[in-house]
Design a binder for these strands. Structure first.
Length: 626
DNA sequence: CGGGATGTTGCTACC
DNA sequence: CGGTAGCAACATCCC
């Protein structure tokens, strides 16, 4: 029996510590082991990923590659520029591979991709080993323990989790790695088509990394931002397992902080340093194992007298992640949208998603049903709503790729049920592009929570953009940091600058006028007027939410699917849907003309991600409507 | 099944 | 200033 020749396929597990899958690969005692990242070039042109998250991913890959080389100077992370669905069958043959090993991923796209790869491997006579390690529990087992249903509350998730027994203890990093074998790539590369290029706005140069399987220098190197033609990243937060473990050491060194952490009490206005751990991007890319995090925190909690408890404690935060992964794993693609989703309430928001009628999936495009709502949305996205708390958060998000969880609450509530009355799917798409820690399960789940369509329903509890931040930051230091034009404003007006007398505005060097598209006026800086009068808008939203709750439709309701929901909202004075003669569907049938084969733009760049191939499916051109 | 308590993270007025 | 009641009100959990 010849010794195994193993491809270890890295995806959202960019680490050496606590990797059950990597351990399984090493347990085979292979003759050779190839640490491989397969990179579908489609990501470059079709992913909704800003430069900050690109940089974080490349950081993780570089750090991992260096760590691998430290264990074996002949080895590294071999980055191969082709989609796994087409690459692996050629690679298995060229390198005489006997085993493929990877970590389980329950994201909807990942399941499609991986089942395809598993089939290819079986056809090629390659054995496949898959281990869970991305989450505390295997999401599929969690669902099983929840009577086959998606985990839609934290108590369900906790109850289901406790039936699965103790969370596995972390596995130490290996102290040696086998050599890789020969690395000939004597086969053709499947080249990507560059159109549609929905990622164009992330780039200011040409993409030059994907011209050959092993990259421009033929050395399997991790691409650079420059090679990818990406605009420079602006975030101070950097990726990689080395950094993640150092951060975890520093956090857990403060045992009181670790043991008594209560999320709702942490300040969303703290920026130097932030009030929470900032480990979420590392959990997403797998540069930190969630189980490592869990046990490092739990061991401190266990020996502490006044420790906080789930769900507000640090480990509680990880349990929410489990809940969202359980919900997503049960629902698949539908989890990230309202249309067809039985768990989600239907609210007739503005700017609804266009639906691909062939797949019943959202397309990443939307319909501008109301120009005013579009104006609200664009000003929200660009951080010029005229509400400094909201604008500061949105500017921090775009610049740094991270905002505090309660800050996310504030902007999400403002965009949806507590202000703009814009569809939560619009907000989720902006977060998808800008957040370093974006993962579909948590992002979609949190947007559903905050917009009160699932997980949470107390829509009458509405965040004020003026009062809420003052709980932590009366002086407005956070606002002054991210909206520097308001730096000199008196604390009395820093959250509502439009109320300051004109003479004071001029004295403080900034006049409040317009919509934020002009930065200066003569010697003065300019900050926009509020996009609407908040309290009136808030009342209108709550009234409409109440009505929509009363109507009581779910995303899977026949009337949502066929468009007849409109009749039920006709007497809703302040926002009756335009016309009753629209096309079928809650939203719109997607234009036939923009379709191509095999891609869905909701796909993400990271391992959980990429080209959403549907057997019978279609691919939509993603055209940004803003 | 009914009904009361609870739900990680609201706001305002009032003592 | 800090704590609390009232606001108008929803779903889930648990006895």
């Amino acid at each position: 029996m010849p010794k195994p020749r193993v491809v270890y396929w890295f995806r959202t597990d960019l680490r050496l510590h606590d990797s059950p899958a990597l351990k399984a690969a090493l347990d085979l005692q292979p003759e050779c082991l190839y640490p491989v990242w397969t990179w579908d070039p489609h990501y470059v042109y079709r992913a909704r990923v800003g430069p900050n998250r690109w940089q974080f991913l490349l950081d993780c890959q570089n750090d991992l590659s260096e760590s691998i080389t430290k264990l074996n100077s002949k080895s590294k992370l071999f980055v191969i520029r082709e989609a796994p669905q087409t690459l692996f069958q050629k690679l298995f043959k060229a390198w005489n591979i006997t085993h493929l090993v990877f970590e389980k991923d329950t994201d909807a796209y990942a399941r499609d991709r991986d089942s395809k790869v598993v089939k290819l491997a079986k056809d090629a006579g390659v054995k496949v080993i898959i281990k869970t390690g991305r989450t505390l529990y295997d999401p599929d087992e969690l669902i099983q323990q929840n009577y086959g249903k998606p985990t839609m509350s934290i108590s369900q998730a906790q109850a289901a989790g406790s039936k699965l027994g103790e969370i596995p203890r972390p596995i130490p990093a290996p102290n040696q790695l086998p050599d890789p074998g020969k690395r000939n790539l004597d086969f053709d590369q499947e080249k990507p088509t560059k159109s549609p290029d929905i990622n164009a706005e992330q780039r200011d140069g040409d993409e030059t990394s994907y011209h050959a399987l092993a990259g421009p220098k033929n050395d399997f190197a991790v691409p650079t931002m420059e090679e990818l033609g990406l605009k420079p990243a602006t975030t101070p937060h950097r990726g990689g397992e080395t950094i993640a473990l150092k951060m975890l050491d520093e956090i857990t060194a403060d045992e009181v902080y670790t043991a008594t952490f209560e999320k709702p009490k942490t300040a969303p206005t703290a920026f130097s340093p932030q009030a929470t751990t900032l480990l979420s991007p590392h959990l997403h890319f797998g540069s930190l194992s969630s189980r490592e995090f869990y046990w490092r925190a739990q061991d401190i909690v266990s020996k502490h007298k006044n420790a906080s408890k789930p769900p507000t404690s640090l480990t509680g935060q990880l349990l929410f992640r489990e809940m969202y992964f359980g919900a997503q794993a049960a629902l698949g693609y539908k989890f990230a949208q309202t249309y067809g989703n039985a768990q989600v309430r239907f609210i007739p928001w503005h700017l609804p998603s266009k639906i691909d009628t062939a797949t019943n999936l959202i397309t990443g495009t939307y319909r501008i049903d109301d120009p005013e709502a579009q104006e609200y949305f664009v000003r929200w996205r660009e951080g010029r709503t005229g509400f400094p708390w909201i604008d500061a958060l949105m500017r921090q998000l775009r610049l740094e790729g991270w905002i505090h969880h309660l800050g996310r609450h504030a902007v999400a509530c403002f965009l949806t049920r507590g202000g703009c009355y814009v569809d939560w799917e619009r907000g989720a798409e902006v977060f998808e592009e800008w957040l370093l820690d974006h993962e579909t399960a948590c992002n979609a789940g949190n947007w559903q929570w905050l917009s009160c369509v699932a997980f949470y329903s107390q829509f009458y509890r509405c965040y004020s953009p003026v009062s809420f931040p003052q709980k932590w930051d009366k002086e407005g230091k956070f606002v002054r940091r991210y909206c520097p034009e308001l730096e000199m404003f008196d604390a009395k007006f820093v959250y509502e600058p439009w109320k300051a007398p004109i003479a004071d505005q001029k004295k403080w060097g900034c006049v409040v006028k317009g919509d934020g598209t002009t930065a200066t006026e003569g010697e003065f800086k300019v900050y926009p007027k509020p996009v609407f009068e908040f309290s009136a808008q808030r009342e209108k939203c709550i009234r409409r939410m109440k009505n929509a709750y009363h109507v009581g439709l779910r995303g899977s309701d026949k009337r949502v699917l066929n468009g007849s929901w409109r009749e039920l909202f006709m007497d809703d004075a302040e926002g009756s849907p335009e016309g009753s003669n629209g096309p079928p569907g809650a939203m719109l049938k997607h234009e036939e003309a923009t379709r191509e084969e095999g891609y869905h733009p909701q796909a993400d760049i990271d391992g959980d991600s990429g080209m959403k191939t549907k057997e019978r499916g279609t691919r939509e051109t993603q055209v940004k409507a803003h």
